[in-house]
Write a protein that binds this DNA or RNA. Structure first.
Lengths: 236, 236
DNA sequence: GGTAGTTACGTACACCGTACGTAGTGCGGT
DNA sequence: ACCGCACTACGTACGGTGTACGTAACTACC
């Protein structure tokens, strides 16, 4: 009688529809879709309970019948975008299959640039997250390794994809968010960097930036990074 | 005359002390230390400009003379905790040196659990971040690789360390934030997980969780993950 | 048919980041 | 020496946030 979890329950544990009262006007999918629409259009910082409620056309506090905390809204959103994955039958080449999966993840994050920020702690246990994990495991069916090791590999892959894509997105947004003068800001930023390097305290960075490497092929870097992770697993 | 950057300047580019008026009452280090103290004690979500100002004993808006935006406060904080790194002379074994550096980073994040959340986008260009990069590069002095490749390795190491430690922290906090009944919550959480697995939709996860692997040695997992990244670089 | 549990939602609270205006302070130029 | 101005300090205020709480309407079960 003392307690009941009060709050920290997982949202997936509570049934979407309780049998008793009037039937809910929205489904979780509706709510998630509305939230995703807002976050896609205006960014994660502009996402508020009020805006989601307005998008749905209901009062702010009505939303709290479906989503007890904002954090749960985030879980719903992650699950919603994770519904878009395609899971072709594993080809037998687990390296290629996992690489393709990683590419899907990267593409998804580019479509929904707020995803990396919400993924920060850990990939949860929403239905679609479980599907994702199960599929990744199925790609590794032929591989002789313990369950724990496979999970480690998958976690590591997800981690690399997430941080890598987060970097891509951050860089892209940094240069987009300056309508007044992109060059000017870039100049100020790298100007400071140059001034620091000029102090001579960072000779290796100075030397590195001196040799012009030409344009960077981000796709290639991404593939190379993943290939390394996969190779290291194969050779273990 | 139209513009001036207005806001987006990097904080490190502006001088700490401007020559003209009365001398500032606080240094950036003071401010960063106060903010770090609050974030350590009460968590990142409890960190507000008002609290930092109160901790320093000045009016809220006075803070804005030193720190134009809250984001800049975050940069100051990251730089402050990065000041604690030790950079022993490279031993000649770059693998061991970088592993040691990674361990330092993990330790630092365990002391300041909010760091991974702020590191999300990219390791910036604060003075201590530059020192860190320069040292990591110096560890790779004997290695025959292009500058870009070395930077890729360092970025990847940082990424793995950050995501891995973020996971550790999230799990730890999840089980700490339940004074009412840790078992009960854990039961509810894994109870839901079990119920999902019982549906038979996730046979591989079911099988995996069925075989009890015993307690997991997180340190070993961490070392193994890093070793893989380093090995993959060595063999490339 | 009563009633208990749900849905809907308006109001209210505490808190946030920060724009803006004003007062005071001490350095630079004359 | 002194003036003027750039800087510091900070109170007030605005528009926003998440969400606790109370109330009214509704419906599925006993």
């Amino acid at each position: 009688m003392v307690g009941r979890p009060a709050v920290p329950e997982v949202i997936w544990a509570r049934p979407e529809r309780a049998g008793r009262g009037p039937k809910p006007a929205f489904s979780r999918a509706d709510i998630a879709a509305a939230a995703v629409r807002i976050a896609d259009a205006e960014g994660l910082d502009a996402l508020s309970m009020r805006k989601v409620a307005a998008e749905l056309g209901c009062g702010t506090m009505s939303l709290y019948n479906y989503v007890p905390r904002k954090e749960d809204l985030h879980e719903l959103m992650l699950d919603a975008v994770s519904a878009g994955y395609e899971y072709p039958d594993p080809s037998g080449d687990w390296r290629a299959d996992l690489l393709a999966l990683a590419h899907q993840a990267r593409g998804m994050m580019h479509r929904h640039t707020w995803v990396p920020r919400l993924m920060s702690p850990v990939y949860g246990f929403s239905p679609n997250a479980l599907r994702y994990l199960e599929y990744a495991l199925s790609c590794l069916d032929g591989v002789d390794a313990r369950f724990g090791e496979k999970m480690e590999l998958i976690a590591m892959l997800n981690g690399v994809v997430t941080t890598y894509t987060a970097n891509e997105i951050a860089t892209a947004e940094r240069s987009r968010s300056l309508p007044w003068s992109e060059e000017q800001e870039q100049a100020a930023r790298t100007g400071y960097l140059i001034s620091q390097i000029m102090t001579g305290k960072y000779p290796r960075m100075a030397a590195g930036f001196a040799e012009d490497p030409g344009p960077i092929d981000l796709d290639a870097v991404f593939d190379r990074a993943l290939a390394r992770v996969l190779d290291s697993f194969a050779s273990a």
